[in-house]
Design a protein around this nucleic acid. Sequence first.
DNA 1: GTCTTAGATTAGATATATTCTAAACAGCAT
DNA 2: ATGCTGTTTAGAATATATCTAATCTAAGAC
Lengths: 141, 141
Amino acid sequence: MDADIIRESLESSGLRCTPQRYAVMAFLMERNSHPTAAEIFDAVNRVDPRCSRATTYNNLRDLVQAGLVREVAVEGRGARFEAIQTRHHHFICDQCGAVEDLDWYDVPKPAGAALGKRVFRDCELIFRGLCQQCAKRKPKS
Amino acid sequence: MDADIIRESLESSGLRCTPQRYAVMAFLMERNSHPTAAEIFDAVNRVDPRCSRATTYNNLRDLVQAGLVREVAVEGRGARFEAIQTRHHHFICDQCGAVEDLDWYDVPKPAGAALGKRVFRDCELIFRGLCQQCAKRKPKS
DNA sequence: GTCTTAGATTAGATATATTCTAAACAGCAT
DNA sequence: ATGCTGTTTAGAATATATCTAATCTAAGAC
């Protein structure tokens, strides 16, 4: 069951497993898409009307801080979220803003000198262009 | 002079060189930072009070469409902008959201099969961690 | 020069996204 | 039960971005 996995990952991150927090996490793990905060709020609130907008945002923030969820910023649109499962890169559609996963492969890190005194945590590769839908709709320019 | 360069790059992109548009572009080229739209508006409006918020946003949109400016989305914060000059990657601070440039180096593209029917336009590499300031302030955790 | 027209600009209103506030609630240790 | 800490709530507040309708400007046509 996912239920125990979710509970455990929450608690091992120091987060109480409240019904609302569980619902947000479960929703993100079920879906392989990258929903916006508004979509998450709608979905969770529809199932359990006792989950307010503020709670959805609070829990998303907590889950991101705990490293269980990743936030993906998209130009000109609301942030998107995904449960962190297997490592991957992202493809973002210029046209519709859809975020899609691409298989992971290693990326060369910058030289230590280039980083200077910064503390490196992670890197990600973002590809841009047109998703399959938009490419079909608008093959030229 | 930058003045002619800016005028020419605007006009060769089919954009009229209006005082407001020029001011936005000049501001972005002078600064090597990555200001938010609000910062750009404040700065341009302070110099020339006859540049409204809407115009600043309109011009940023036009400049991005023309390929002269890049928009950088940062999680949980307003969009940031930069004049496109030499190619580079980005480092984004987890703590303060600062965006810094790192020297460019080639990145392997994904296999054609992985991209499927998508249309590839560009890729960028984003490094995350703590910038020098924040690393000093908070060396642990 | 002045007419015309398309594009640009303006202030303020509006829309959208996110966070804050203050009060109430829940789980857990005393 | 009591108190403590963290959580949740509804709605207000803030931040960010875009829209609207009127006005202005520049450049070409005459």
